[in-house]
Design a protein around this nucleic acid. Sequence first.
DNA 1: TCCTGACGTTACAGATCGGTAACATGGGCG
DNA 2: CGCCCATGTTACCGATCTGTAACGTCAGGA
Lengths: 212, 212
Amino acid sequence: MDNDELVSECVKSARPRERIIDTAQLLFRKHGIRGVGVDAIAEAAGTNKMTLYRHFGSKDELIAECLRETARGADPFWRDLEDNFPGDPLAQLHEWVRAVATYASMEAGGCDLVTAAFELPEPDHPARLVVEAFKHDQRQRLIALCRKAGIKEAEKLADTLGLLLEGARVNRRSVGPDGPSARFVMLAEAVIASFSAAGKVETKGKKVAEGV
Amino acid sequence: MDNDELVSECVKSARPRERIIDTAQLLFRKHGIRGVGVDAIAEAAGTNKMTLYRHFGSKDELIAECLRETARGADPFWRDLEDNFPGDPLAQLHEWVRAVATYASMEAGGCDLVTAAFELPEPDHPARLVVEAFKHDQRQRLIALCRKAGIKEAEKLADTLGLLLEGARVNRRSVGPDGPSARFVMLAEAVIASFSAAGKVETKGKKVAEGV
DNA sequence: TCCTGACGTTACAGATCGGTAACATGGGCG
DNA sequence: CGCCCATGTTACCGATCTGTAACGTCAGGA
């Protein structure tokens, strides 16, 4: 509560609206969504409560907008994946493992969307719609990637990797960065290897090329 | 906030202290730890705020005590595992998968300990000590079980299963019971199978008997 | 120039929060 | 009986919360 003013110093945006969203994301991560009030957000963003309420009708709307902004951040992630390994979905899959592990070990760490789902138990909260849509979208993308990579049981591998990742993030959040979450890359690679082997056994004789 | 009085009807305990803990656990699950006040807990428990504060010095202490109580609930779980399949650690491992999946699909669902870790970001909160100790204990138990079951890379399998489980719980919490979390048993069994195969390949020629 | 619209400032409402003080009550036990 | 201790009751404190009203200020465009 003391150094939150400094937080806003890292947020240099012209428009108050962007400053508020950026600052709110930082403060939500630090103190929890319910642990920070709109007054503190506005002040840390270098503005005031009235301006905040003129842009976002309520705190719940601000929360939802912050989550939408966070969710939009995943798009360049997938674009980079495709750009860095064009036409090589298996390499993209391995890079996905490495990249999400790197992202999960940052201070942003635990996915803001999941954190919000934990902090807001009301089933009809506007933020829940954002979370569900995001999770569904990410799952579909990962399934498609596994399928293009020639994995036979693509859904199964994608769900295993997805649950492993969420587990690693939540574990890191509850027991710190030195727990089992530190082994995520190794565990995920082992799972991919086992699914790849199974896939090749089953598709023996057939061309592996399914994607690409 | 309206039907929380009925909640207390399910809690028939003689002593106010137990009633308060049981009621607090229910309300924390329903509204979140930060979403329910001590007054509401006391009233729903059929007592009053003063009695609550005489038993637990603060809300934070009550939270920690609730988590300790929840953590104690895992002991009979492991005892049943040993009692139902005595001397058969591999069967115990498969039963572990089935049992935790059943538990995770109940309304208690998302582990209260993890939820608390998400809701209480302060790193020195007394509840965090309980969470970390519990998670460490569960991990050690699962590693020991895998080892006794003859798995060669016991730690690796235990961590994979642990992260899968935590991922399934958090996924269920964020996208509901019809997401990938519904496939936890299948995914976990596939992982066990792959580790069992790897273990047998590597220990080929040696006696498999290591535990028991 | 003037006007409009975004933004800042102050004050306030109504509710709820965690936590405490003072006192009444009532049952078990010597 | 008389005492004690756990519990119930009421009132209160100061702080904080979301959200609103009224009124300045100021830059930029027609």
